[in-house]
């Protein structure tokens, strides 16, 4: 029982380190698309591990925490995808390191979904 509590605390510590990496990645990456990658990916696993550690420490909270984890896993990739799409259609260019941009080539040729909706 005591070992489970220590294991939960260590998992929580690792999760909070991933949240910190998400913040560092958000600060260091050169353009918006890489920032979305670093931010959402690392913060997803970071919060999952943090919640799971608390769930191991208090086993009677585990069901609610599982529900919370399912919400985060479903909603976080969708919001990152929506933000990337918004950045592209708001006309924010990727940094100069980006060497292939197939999306820009294709959306310049054909009218985008944004135009069709109007």
């Amino acid at each position: 029982m005591e070992h489970l509590k220590i294991a939960g605390a260590i998992i929580t510590l690792i999760g909070s380190l991933f949240v910190l990496f998400a913040a560092i990645g958000l600060l260091r990456m050169p353009d918006i698309y890489n920032r979305i990658q670093a931010g959402t990916k690392a913060s997803t696993l970071g919060s999952i591990l943090t919640l799971l550690g608390i769930g191991l420490y208090h086993p009677d909270w585990l069901l609610k925490i599982m529900l919370l984890i399912v919400f985060i896993v479903i909603s976080n990739p969708v919001s990152s995808h929506v933000l990337g799409r918004a950045a592209h259609f708001a006309g924010i260019l990727p940094s100069e390191k980006t060497h292939t941009n197939k999306l820009k080539e294709d959306t310049l040729e054909t009218p985008t979904t944004k135009e069709e909706k109007k």
């Binding site: 991933f18 990496f21 560092i24 990645g25 260091r28 990456m29 050169p30 353009d31 698309y33 890489n34 990658q37 670093a38 990916k41 690392a42 696993l45 970071g46 990727p94 940094s95 390191k97 980006t98 060497h99 292939t100 941009n101 197939k102 999306l103 820009k104 294709d106």
Partner: peptide, 22 residues
């Protein structure tokens, strides 16, 4: 994915090579 991302973020030279592919 997270370990790859952590390694990329923490290395001082920031070894990224981004691109958008089909």
């Amino acid at each position: 994915a997270n370990f790859v991302m952590a390694k990329t973020v923490l290395s001082p030279s920031l070894p990224i090579n981004p691109g958008i592919v089909r």
